[in-house]
Design a protein around this nucleic acid. Structure first.
Lengths: 231, 231
DNA sequence: CAGATTATGTCAGTCGCTGACAATGGGCAA
DNA sequence: TTGCCCATTGTCAGCGACTGACATAATCTG
């Protein structure tokens, strides 16, 4: 589920981070707890009264912490809304890392999102928040300019990670060979197109519906790049 | 150069908009003037002391208008920084609209950005601000999270326009045929990859260098999507 | 030259976000 | 257990982005 450093600090110094298999300890647990509570409360409020209409104060007092504490967990209001998406993306990267080397890069990418969606869809809860509410979130993101902007930025950052993973997988240097970069970019854009057409749909089809949409978009990659369309 | 409505309002009512070939009139001219001055002043300040370190007040007083007036021209601080990019994108769309129908959709897109960059590069000034300062702007955008986010959002909005133009061009309904959407997405992502590698370069190569970069990235489209890379 | 429009300035206020400092409370060694 | 260290939190004060409301000044229309 990836740690997600509280925010400005990434200690990395002595060893405040949980040693591999050790029990987190009370302090760490409470932290995770309030973080989760903040995300939870924020989602409820956002979906109930809208993103802009919800103040950070409301979220904080709902969890009974100070506003200042909220900002120690999230750099800004956007971040708390995008938290679940971030976790999902991390899981996708994990899937990608475990793909068999025999697969084509494009195949590996495609198989990874499908797997990620299927797993997160069946798991019912990604640690918190069902897939269902995550989907409502996606629609909200698409409708809220500032959120959409922040989300797109996150996505492009993840794309860099994808470039790195693909490059390692194929034993290439992304600085010399443009293919990993281009592939990651194309992959990301196709995914986003699928997301968009998903949220545009009035029908809130389940995760399986989303997977179907993704597949359909990928299937159009070849035809779209092909020569003349009227033949 | 596309109107860019002052902001919250889009009259469209009687006819305050300039009738086709009529002289703009004093009021309109002064408006355009202060708008340009604001963009100009903002760029100087941004490049000189950084985006975050520049307050809206500074920009406004530099042009000798109130802060409130600034916000009547631009919805937020981001917008004034992205204004030139927006104009460039509008010009690109214009180029795309005039591409011969004989070209493949992908060819038309590719030819359009190249033409857009070349024209804007040789024109020396896009109405204001040379290409050179525009390039510095791009680097700043890439380095400033909030600006990057806003820029990405703008880009995806332009992608919708591209979808529309391509669909009309080929006589398709984008709701039924996914190819325009997928193509636009892929095109946008490849372009962005080129932009990124541009700003990553220490060498501030001119517009021609950028065109070369774009071409190189497009040439990798096929190879990137092809099967196994190690053959 | 009126009188209708429209851009602009002023003012006051909300909200996102941050630095500084003090207080609380868990982690841990003696 | 005791007591020290340090992390987390709360409080406070403040800056800057942004907005609504209203008054003023400028342009445009006839």
């Amino acid at each position: 589920m990836a740690a997600h450093a509280p925010h400005p600090d990434a200690p990395t110094g002595p060893v405040p981070v949980t040693p591999p298999g050790r029990v987190p300890g009370l302090r760490e647990r409470k932290k995770q707890q309030t973080r989760d509570a903040l995300v939870q409360a924020a989602h409820v409020l956002f979906l109930g009264q809208g993103f802009a209409q919800t103040t950070v104060d409301e979220i904080a007092t709902a969890v009974d912490v100070s506003q200042r504490t909220f900002f120690r967990y999230f750099a800004n209001k956007d971040e708390v809304a995008l938290a679940v998406m971030a976790d999902a993306e991390d899981y996708f990267i994990e899937c990608l890392r475990h793909r068999p080397a025999a697969e084509t890069p494009l195949q590996a990418l495609r198989a990874s999102i499908v797997k990620a969606w299927r797993d997160l869809g069946s798991a019912e809860h990604t640690g918190l928040g069902s897939i269902h509410s995550a989907l409502e979130l996606m629609r909200m993101i698409e409708e809220t300019p500032t959120l959409l902007a922040a989300h797109l930025r996150r996505v492009t950052e993840q794309e860099r990670v994808v470039v790195q993973v693909i490059a390692e997988r194929e034993g290439l240097d992304p600085a010399l060979d443009l293919r990993p970069t281009v592939l990651a970019a194309v992959f990301g854009s196709v995914l986003r197109a699928a997301h968009l057409s998903w949220t545009a749909d009035q029908e809130p089809a389940g995760p399986e519906g989303m997977i179907a949409l993704i597949e359909r978009h990928f299937d159009q990659l070849g035809p779209a790049l092909a020569g003349h369309w009227r033949s």
